[in-house]
């Protein structure tokens, strides 16, 4: 068993290593390569041509004239130290930008995903409880409709209605311009106000899918003999609803929750753009548009690592939470 944990942990590092390598390769795939743009930019800024390469090496920890393997080693070793170089477009260390952006994104993604599951589980279990009723049919229809609306459509509409037309909520940013960036009540209120629309848009569409999943799970659990036996044994309805139905229906959704957390991080590329919400996704897109490769690659890596760690935690903890699953799973038996 411990062998499995060791192997699983080793795989996390192997995967992160592989993705870092991939990002290194990807930069070199991009039109013009990683340095053309930067060179042009530096030249425009009046840096003498003879010094350009040195400046690049200084900025990116990579000597553009070194052989590829040398560049690769330099890149990997600086990434390993958390040094992502300096952003071309923003002129700040990439690590600093990311450190400032990550909390906003994590906040929005975490809160919206939790809300999405909470509403989904609540609605889904009610639907299963009243299976076949008018309520069930109406909400099944609603769930399908919700699933069909991309979150960016919700985002644009809510921005249009609540921010631009009615002016109830801010149209952009993470906090008000006049608010000091320190931990204070006005700061928190402003942050909350700015996050309402992004969280709302990122939650709404997801509720449908979770509700349908929960509904299906609950209906399946309700059809199991052990629920019937529990009733015959005289258990209280409340205990059957929580300990039997809810527990067995929600547990399979746990892995989905952690995986979704990771996946939804990458969706912020679109979400944060619409709300000009300066999180990870916002900077990723900004970097992409500005050919700011150091920033782009760093955001890419951070999102990837979050994803890998999410899957890792899901794999390791699921067997603890659901006794039916043994760590390692049957997948690896052959």
């Amino acid at each position: 068993m411990s062998n499995y944990y060791v192997r699983r942990t080793a795989r996390v590092f192997a995967t992160i290593f592989a993705v870092a390598t991939l990002t290194f390769g990807l930069i070199r795939l991009l039109p013009g390569g990683p340095f053309t743009q930067l060179r042009a930019q530096l030249l425009r800024q009046g840096v003498p041509a003879s010094e350009v390469d040195a400046r690049i090496a200084n900025l990116q920890n990579i000597n553009p004239n070194a052989p590829l393997w040398q560049q690769y080693l330099d890149y990997m070793s600086s990434v390993a130290q958390g040094n992502f170089g300096e952003s071309i477009s923003l002129g700040e260390p990439v690590a600093l930008i990311i450190a400032e952006a990550v909390p906003w994104t994590v906040f929005v993604v975490l809160v919206s995903t939790i809300l999405m599951f909470a509403f989904g589980i609540f609605l889904g279990s009610l639907q299963a409880y009243w299976e076949g009723s008018r309520f069930d049919k109406a909400f099944s229809g609603l769930s399908i409709a919700l699933m069909s609306i991309p979150f960016y459509v919700v985002a644009v509409i809510s921005l249009y209605v609540f921010a631009y037309q009615w002016g109830w909520l801010p149209t952009a940013g993470t906090v008000g311009a006049s608010v000091e960036k320190e931990l204070s009540i006005p700061f928190l209120l402003s942050a909350l106000e700015h996050s309402i629309l992004p969280i709302f848009s990122y939650t709404l569409g997801g509720i449908g899918g979770q509700a349908l999943a929960m509904r299906g799970n609950s209906i399946q659990v309700l059809g199991n003999d052990y629920v019937r036996v529990a009733r015959l044994r005289g258990l209280a309805d409340r205990r059957i609803a929580t300990r039997y139905v809810a527990r067995n229906a929600i547990l399979p959704m746990y892995t989905g929750f952690l995986l979704l957390l990771g996946f939804r991080l990458s969706g912020t590329v679109i979400l944060e753009q619409i709300f000009s919400y300066t999180g990870l996704g916002y900077y990723m897109f900004a970097a992409l548009k500005a050919n700011d490769y150091p920033l782009m690659m760093a955001t890419f890596l951070v999102i990837t690592v979050a994803l890998i760690v999410g899957v890792y935690i899901a794999d390791l903890t699921y067997s603890k939470i659901d006794p039916r699953i043994s760590a390692g799973g049957s997948d690896e038996a052959y």
Binding site: N224, D225, Y226, A230, L232, G234, R247, N248, P323
Partner: peptide
């Protein structure tokens, strides 16, 4: 009292056997 066919499906898969005994005693 009753015993159904398929004992596997008569127990709550996420509860220990002891839990089934205890909750039955408590419920009565």
């Amino acid at each position: 009292s009753m015993v159904f066919q398929g004992a596997m499906s008569s127990f709550n898969p996420t509860m220990k056997i002891g839990g089934h005994f205890k909750e039955t005693l408590k419920a009565h």
